[in-house]
């Protein structure tokens, strides 16, 4: 036997449901947006990582010694720097993220001018379309034994090492 006791409540329920969903849709469609701001979180993390790696490389092993970074620049040892940098940078890399790649340049002052030379890279071809960040470290070089021509002056100086890094 079919009776109509519940009909009214059902209609009410359906109507209220439709009304609520419509309201929700309108509210959401009005205010939903695509935030490009979150793309900078990745930059921030990569930049922190790069700065930390360079800072730890620029810390002398014993007090009074030159730091490993200073030695790489003094000897123009680009492969030594590359291995060391990649080891540190990729130690903290999490699975699912690509490996870190880099390219670095040294800037120095020669009288009133600023010169630069290419120092080291990870051996990857840069297309120029990577999502890159740039970190830098001022390195104190006491004695330039092997400056690449046309190189910096032979004097104790502070050079600026710039490392551009990205993930593949």
């Amino acid at each position: 036997m079919v009776n109509e006791n519940g009909v009214l409540y059902t209609i009410e329920g359906v109507a209220a449901g439709v009304l609520m969903i419509t309201t929700a849709y309108l509210v959401v469609s009005t205010t939903v947006m695509f935030t490009p701001g979150d793309s900078h979180i990745i930059d921030m993390q990569l930049e922190q990582l790069g700065n930390d790696v360079l800072a730890s490389m620029d810390t002398p092993i014993r007090y009074g010694d030159p730091s490993p970074l200073e030695l790489y620049i003094t000897d123009n040892d680009s492969s030594g720097f590359s291995n060391h940098f990649l080891l540190y940078a990729n130690t903290a890399a999490q699975p699912g993220f690509g490996r870190i790649k880099f390219n670095s340049t040294v800037y120095y002052r020669k009288d009133a001018d600023v010169g630069s030379y290419h120092f080291s890279d990870s051996g990857d071809i840069m297309t120029g379309r990577e999502h890159m960040v740039n970190v830098n470290r001022r390195v104190f070089v006491k004695d330039y034994t092997n400056p690449p021509p046309p190189g910096p002056d032979d004097r104790p100086q502070s050079v600026l090492l710039e490392v551009t890094l990205w993930r593949d």
Binding site: D43, R129, M132, V133, N134, T164
Partner: peptide
Amino acid sequence: KSLNFKNVPYRENTLQ
């Protein structure tokens, strides 16, 4: 700012 002050050579950003 990243291009200017941080010397990043290239940037892209998605815009809606």
